[in-house]
Design a protein around this nucleic acid. Structure first.
Length: 744
RNA sequence: GCACCUUUAGCUCAGUUGGUUAGAGCGUUCGAUUCACAUUCGAAAGGUCGCAGGUUCGAAUCCUGCAAGGUGCACCA
């Protein structure tokens, strides 16, 4: 068969992703089809169609796209494109996150590097202005990178955590929770970061293993041990287990005199089960102001709590001669003094322990007692209306009860299922949530004080009222994300149409941080679940299964992959072989392999078009003979299987199935077998083959589209207006909104 | 310490409620081809399904124990 002159020229060379992708992107963008309203207007979606909605987990404004984002975008876009083609009213809503602590610390670092100034030198307003400039500049980068993955997000609904509608939502949520008695102020021990001068949530703490000298000291008749002698000045309680026979002679509450760092003190014996008999001597002294465990012991027994270290890490007057010294400097000096006084028994130089650090770019955590705002997760309140199974409208309940009921009732399904256990374990152990932060960038606490009086309201209560200087934990606003992005607290049509959202797709590492808090907020404020299903994907690792990190130098940048192999290949490499919830090993070779596949699809099209155009026969519905009809049916059966896998979130199997069909069944067998007939002289047989090949090509393009939208759309755009050659007409201008194949 | 995940071909992984000779891709070896394919196609080799028990007519699949690797949570003064 001689090559046709009528083949679009592009098909005569290999598929060039770099050249096509920009073109296709602007085609999609100008079509407006990512917006469900446009789809209804243009008649591609029925007015009363079922809805399918996903809210994009907003990437940090200051970040750049990494493979984790790329995987998230690929997975969600596949689900979105699939449902859009199936005729759902489909919304994928984009946004970005201000990432309060991380962003502010970045700007502060730059400020110090460039001008040797701290935030206190330039003041709140100036710092916020600088942060604005910084975030506006980097926002554009992450948005552009997100688009290049082929994400069919509806940018007309774009939301930013710090924009005005979201700010209003956060303020409203705070006030409502306060009025229901769920938000309270209290002095509690919190994770204090002396470097960033703010509290840090439990989840944001990262424990790092460290080797330090371990000091054994004589404390009256007891031996105690510590890594941190600088906290020991105020220790006047000595704790042991009530069942520890070695210390049976001591009574709870008994007082003993002893010589300590700065002279004689009176210590009180406390018997508490928190003391571990197996560890060291089984005796410890406590520092309630700077240790969570010690604080709890002190509370149980009503003990005095004295602060020893201030917010910046400086010793207070209680430290006597060491007062005013930074703890780092003071430690060796204190050890030296104890040695002189004969209090130091021995030192274990190789003691390995975990040290709490702030994972958001901060320093070592120094627990402190602070006046903070809290959400009481176990406080009772009356829920006005509830659609959550097991929770009646008007009943008395708690936030943890709502969180439990939402998942336990099956109302929210977590995929893979075993994460439901992790979720419930987390909810069961939830402490009151400290929501105030002492940083400046963020949603400011809507509380006002005047002459010791306090009022909570969105607007200032009037003249002379001063607003609380704290801002809210970034997860407080993130918790509202599924509905604040849809217009809440206003009763918008978007909110009525798209909430609860269909699926929340995110990495499994973020389950407690975010997923649980969205369930909490949605249950309390909306009386409903935020999403029906939670799909958790795994982490993207390097070819050897290691975490990608700068220090290892094994980072694979998604944008490099897009440039070298195309966005389609990049997407496929992140989906095929990635089982739900399991980590994925990604190597450049994988991506390269899928680039070949994009080219294969390109060439299949070329062959089919050549076969059709050079030998056009009349098209009609009876043109297919039984043998070819069966092949088309086979493709439809495949479509059904692919749909089944997509419906159960097995994107890996769905993609693998189409990949295998297109390459090894359609190209290797069906096309190969058809060559003889196409070259032959029987017009009826030939026409049947042509029609069969064309129909299977169309089905293949549709099935491939969610996975590799660029190459398939590029092909679709080049398909000749087949009506003019009497072929089946192209049913829509864009493949993006073509109809998903149905079983026939 | 507690919980969870993983373990199937050299590598990366499928194997859905237990059911014939356990599959794919990459890689390897051999062959064909430049007739849609910056190539492609065909064929072959390669597995005691982590180990040990158990249930069953039948187990990669279910149960128990163990081992190795990984992750999360807790944490010790």
């Amino acid at each position: 068969m001689e090559p046709s002159k009528n083949i679009p020229e592009d098909f005569l060379k290999p598929y060039n992703s770099l050249e096509k992708e920009g073109e296709i992107l602007s085609l999609w963008e100008s079509s407006g089809y990512a917006n469900p309203d446009v789809c209804v207007e243009k008649g591609v979606t029925a007015v009363d169609a079922e809805t399918f909605s996903i809210v994009l987990p907003p990437p940090n404004v200051t970040g750049t796209l990494h493979m984790g984002h790329a995987a998230m975008l690929a997975i969600e876009d596949i689900l979105i494109r699939y449902h859009r083609m199936k005729g759902y009213k489909t919304l994928w809503l984009p946004g970005t996150d201000s990432a309060a602590i991380a962003t502010q610390s970045k700007v502060e670092e730059a400020l110090y590097k460039e001008e040797k100034k701290t935030r206190h030198d330039i003041g709140r307003e100036n710092l916020l202005a600088r942060i604005d400039i910084f975030t506006e500049a980097s926002k554009a980068i992450i948005i552009d990178q997100t688009k290049r993955m082929g994400s069919s997000l509806d940018w007309s609904r774009y939301a930013y955590t710090m924009d005005a509608p979201r700010y209003k939502a956060v303020m409203t949520a705070f006030v409502r929770m306060y009025e229901s008695g769920l938000i309270y102020r209290g002095d509690r021990i919190v994770n204090w970061d002396p470097k960033l001068q703010t509290t840090v949530s439990d989840e944001e703490i990262e424990y790092k293993e460290q080797t330090d000298p371990f000091f054994y000291m004589q404390y009256g008749p007891f031996q105690i041990a510590t890594v941190r002698p600088e906290t020991k000045f105020g220790d006047k309680y000595v704790v042991m287990h009530p069942d520890d026979e070695r210390y049976a002679q001591y009574e709870h509450g008994e007082q003993i005199e002893l010589e300590w760092i700065n002279g004689p003190i009176t210590a009180t014996i406390i018997k508490d089960e928190a003391a571990d008999m197996e560890f060291g001597s089984g005796v410890m002294t406590i520092t309630p102001a700077h240790s969570l465990v010690d604080f709890e012991i002190a509370q149980r027994h009503g003990l005095d709590i004295e602060q020893v270290i201030d917010d910046r890490g400086i010793l207070l007057p209680i430290a006597g001669e060491f007062a005013g010294t930074h703890i780092k400097k003071a430690r060796p000096m204190i050890v030296e003094k104890m040695k002189e006084k004969g209090l130091l028994v021995r030192v274990d130089e190789k003691y390995v322990h975990n040290v709490a650090t702030n994972s958001r770019g901060g320093g070592m955590i120094e627990p402190q007692i602070k006046r903070q705002w809290f959400v009481g997760v176990n406080r009772e309140f009356t829920i006005p209306h509830s659609k959550i199974p097991g929770i009646a409208s008007g009943s008395t309940t708690t936030l943890t009860a709502l969180m439990r009921a939402s998942v336990a009732s099956g109302s929210i399904q977590i995929v893979p299922e075993h994460f439901e256990k992790i979720y419930s374990h987390w909810v069961d152990n939830l402490h009151d949530w400290c929501i105030s932060r002492q940083i400046w960038f963020g949603h400011r606490v809507p509380a006002w004080t005047k002459d010791g009086e306090i009022k909570v309201s969105i607007e200032s209560p009037g003249e002379g009222w001063e607003q609380d200087s704290d801002t809210l934990d970034t997860w407080f606003s993130s918790g509202l994300w599924t509905f604040s992005t849809l217009g809440w607290p206003d009763d918008t049509s978007d909110l009525r149409t798209f909430h609860p959202t269909s699926v929340l797709e995110t990495g499994y590492d973020i389950l407690p941080f975010w997923v649980a808090r969205m369930i909490l907020m949605s249950a309390f404020l909306m009386g409903e679940i935020p999403f029906h299903q939670v799909y958790l994907h795994g982490m993207v690792r390097d070819g050897q299964g290691r975490k990608m990190s700068k220090s290892l130098g094994n980072i694979i940048n998604p944008l490099d992959m897009i440039e070298k192999y195309g966005a389609d290949a990049t997407r496929l490499s992140l989906v095929i072989g990635a089982q739900i919830g399991n980590d994925l090993k990604l190597s450049e070779d994988r991506v390269r392999g899928y680039k070949h596949f994009a080219n294969k699809v390109w060439n299949i099209t070329r062959f089919v078009l050549e076969s059709i155009e050079s030998r056009v026969g009349p098209w009609d519905s009876t043109v297919l003979n039984d043998e070819d009809e069966e092949k088309v049916r086979e493709a439809h059966r495949l479509a059904a299987d692919v749909s089944k896998h997509l419906d159960s979130f097995r994107l890996d199997l769905a993609a693998d199935l189409v990949y295998h069909f297109v390459w090894h069944r359609f190209a290797d067998e069906i096309i190969e077998e058809s060559k003889a007939v196409l070259k032959g002289n029987d017009p009826a047989l030939r026409t049947s083959k042509q029609r069969m090949l064309y129909e299977i090509l169309i089905i293949s393009l549709k099935l491939l589209h969610p996975f590799m939208p660029f190459v398939t759309e590029a092909i679709w755009q080049k398909l000749p207006a087949l009506s003019s050659v009497e072929g089946p007409e192209k049913e829509s201008d864009l493949l993006m909104v073509a109809k998903w194949p149905q079983l026939r």
